[in-house]
Design a protein around this nucleic acid. Sequence first.
DNA 1: GGCCCATACCTAGAATTCGTAGGTTAAGAT
DNA 2: ATCTTAACCTACGAATTCTAGGTATGGGCC
Lengths: 112, 112
Amino acid sequence: MGRKPHKNDSLPGSLDMLILRTLSLRDLHGYGISQFIQQSSGDELLVEEGSLYPALQRLELNGWISGAWGRTANNRRARIYKITAAGTKQLAVETRQYAKLTLAIARVMGPE
Amino acid sequence: MGRKPHKNDSLPGSLDMLILRTLSLRDLHGYGISQFIQQSSGDELLVEEGSLYPALQRLELNGWISGAWGRTANNRRARIYKITAAGTKQLAVETRQYAKLTLAIARVMGPE
DNA sequence: GGCCCATACCTAGAATTCGTAGGTTAAGAT
DNA sequence: ATCTTAACCTACGAATTCTAGGTATGGGCC
């Protein structure tokens, strides 16, 4: 019965950062990225495939990640992504921005 | 020279919560809500009017706020909004959800 | 009075992002 | 042989925001 994970709907704009962060830990394919985010969030975040794959294409177009066809540990055909140098910089930028934004929101929301 | 405030673009979905929070402190008109958010965020959040007024209409349609024509302290014609009982509940819901989401994101983003 | 500026409101349309809801391929298990 | 699951992909619609306009009015200044 566990509660259903939140769709990322509730906090758009964070998906790119989460993907970059995941790939900063290890090279991974799309499906695996989705699973990592779900598991490492304590089953609270759910990345739908209809959001994931377009996001990966976006990130690759921006030069922040690069993908190549390969095989997973399960011997499955998959597109393995790795973060680029530009992507690493971008991750730092987004992480800083995110921290500033949540701090700003916290100021408005007050102490209680 | 101060950095420009972030457009709320970066963290959509939080605007409704910020408006409800503002109105939970005092009745206010749209322009004043925008100014309050900007100032209380330490000049980091900027709510564009093209986002603000549609958001107010949305919230009123949902029954979370109610507006009435009146006058500001400046003797300006303005639509004064107040939060409803349903809006107060909604604020609590959104605040809880927001806390859970930012916590989940923090888990994925890790310690460093 | 006439002009300007700031306050205050509003809307249409584009851009972005996400979800829904499909569909395809292939590996391994039964 | 069939089923399940992993893994990928796309088209379309929904929602939110910004851009870029526009309108009205009150107060200050000349």
